[in-house]
């Protein structure tokens, strides 16, 4: 474990240096959060329509959680831009020469490159959104603890997902087709476009069947109290099952890709 842990620490510390980028990203996320909460507020102000599975307060908190944890999800650094450059330039040979497991190495990188920027953005977002924009704290301690546990597991799940996408680079470096198309599915399926409970009731089983719900919506609902803390075990089990499946898929891709990899350059 030690080399991976050392790599995680090094990446983590390096990424913490990008404070100006974090500040600009924070400003943009804040602005989008303000727009979204106003839009949802206007929808809630209407009288018609069907049943409302969440209150406006819960929806507001859900949106701010989405803004705070936006960088945890695999949109921006996906596939890992460093790995892409390495594969394009042939420097990936150094990664292969290390006495380490390539998939675990990339998984570690993916985890560090999600967690560090997220921590920098999430804390100020909580402070500002709670102070000025109607976000609330979890209803009780058990909800807060359950949400934290599920969020940590969600980080691992998204890192496993991102590593699968990075592994596809071993086949196509130029197209990056999958890498450009999947983020839209993650965006809508995780609850970042609109809170998942607000989708039609008939769509809920479909959303639950996909892996994306466990990346953001499940921990968010634990935080708000829409899921009781007792649901934590079921959430963690689902997250672990998807993580395992994606790690196995990623390992298979990396192994096959490594076998047919031809290194070029002098």
């Amino acid at each position: 474990m030690t080399p991976y842990l050392a790599l995680f620490r090094a990446r983590f510390r390096a990424l913490l240096q990008y404070r100006a980028a974090a500040l600009a990203g924070f400003g943009t996320q804040l602005f989008f959060g303000i727009i979204r909460t106003m839009i949802l507020g206007a929808f809630y102000a209407g009288q018609g329509g069907g049943a409302r599975p969440m209150t406006l307060g819960e929806t507001t908190t859900y949106i701010w959680l989405g803004q705070a944890f936006f960088y945890l999800l695999p949109f921006s650094a996906n596939p890992d831009p460093d790995v892409r450059d390495m594969i394009k330039s042939g420097q990936v040979v150094y990664e292969l020469a290390r006495p380490l497991d390539l998939h675990t190495l990339w998984l570690t990188r993916a985890l560090a490159s999600r967690v560090a920027p997220t921590l920098m953005r999430a804390l100020p977002m909580f402070v500002v959104a709670i102070a000025f924009f109607g976000m609330t704290l979890p209803p009780a301690w058990p909800a807060a603890l359950a949400a934290t546990a599920a969020m940590a597991m969600a980080a691992l799940l998204t890192a496993a997902f991102a590593t699968v996408i990075t592994a596809t680079l071993l086949w196509t470096t130029s197209g990056e087709g999958i890498a450009r198309i999947l983020p839209s599915l993650v965006l809508i399926g995780s609850g970042m476009v609109i809170p998942l409970p607000l989708f039609p009731d008939w769509a809920q089983p479909l959303l639950t069947a996909l892996p994306f719900r466990a990346m953001a919506d499940d921990p968010f609902r634990l935080y708000i109290g829409l899921l009781p803390p007792s649901a934590l075990l079921a959430v963690l089990a689902r997250q672990a099952a998807w993580t395992l499946a994606l790690v196995l898929l990623g390992r298979g891709l990396v192994a096959r890709g490594q076998r047919r990899l031809v290194l070029q350059g002098g």
Partner: peptide, 22 residues
């Protein structure tokens, strides 16, 4: 797809709430 999912969000909200500001 990127714009499509945004639209899906708008559609779902109008479907649930009926209208926005009329």
């Amino acid at each position: 797809l990127g714009i499509g999912v945004e639209f899906l969000g708008v559609w779902a909200l109008v479907d649930r709430f009926g209208a926005v500001r009329g």
